[in-house]
């Protein structure tokens, strides 16, 4: 005598799956972390001497405890910082090492992808902040400086490869541009400049 085959009713399968789906939809966090990446200098050796850098090669940015800026000895504004930093680091002619007196010096580096030996700027942005500076201000300053470097890289990439820097996919080209315009931001060893 044939027994009736008991089949599990699959009608509610969709509902169960829906329930699970909604659970995972709600708990999913697809937040991709983003931020400004920086590389810290290695710890200084005990017997380190101060490295002398010529005055004309430094672009000084000071942020005091009231979040006011001092750019190259003059009061500055965070809105002008990008333009000022760009002007300082700008390097229109890679072929020649000749620079006017008031501009940062250049040094010769071999970058085959940009046409062999090229002259890149020796300019360094020196950033110094007080212990009382707010983190928000510090990030704004870092952001403007990063923007200046990004814009310069974009311009150079446009000249040589005809696209924006972030559109480059060739690892060698990215390296070449990074070498021609390094992230030349140096942060001073911390010290109290304005007290607490």
């Amino acid at each position: 005598m044939a027994r009736p085959v008991n089949e599990i009713n699959a009608g509610s399968m969709a509902d169960i799956a829906f329930l699970l789906l909604i659970f995972f939809l709600v708990t999913t966090t697809m937040d991709t972390d983003s931020g400004i990446t920086r590389k810290l200098p290695p710890p200084p050796p005990e017997d380190m001497e101060d490295i002398k850098v010529k005055e004309r090669n430094i672009f000084k940015v000071l942020v005091n405890k009231n979040d006011r800026l001092l750019v190259n000895g003059e009061p500055g504004d965070v809105r002008d910082l990008r333009r000022q930093a760009k002007e300082f680091l700008a390097n229109k002619n890679l072929k020649s090492g000749a620079v006017p007196e008031d501009r940062p010096e250049k040094k010769e580096v071999d970058i085959p992808l940009l046409g062999g030996n090229v002259w890149i700027s020796k300019g360094i942005i020196s950033l110094k902040n007080d212990r009382g500076t707010s983190y928000d201000m510090y990030i704004q300053v870092q952001n403007e400086l990063a923007a200046a470097i990004r814009e310069l890289r974009d311009e150079m990439t446009q000249d040589y490869f005809g696209m924006r820097f972030d559109q480059l996919t060739d690892e060698d080209k990215i390296k070449a541009i990074q070498k021609a315009i390094p992230v030349a931001i140096s942060e001073a060893e911390p010290e109290d400049i304005g007290g607490k």
Binding site: S34, T37, R38, K39, L40, P43, I139
Partner: peptide
Amino acid sequence: RKANALKINYST
């Protein structure tokens, strides 16, 4: 820096 963990990211 002391620990040689040099790559940092300021989350923004």
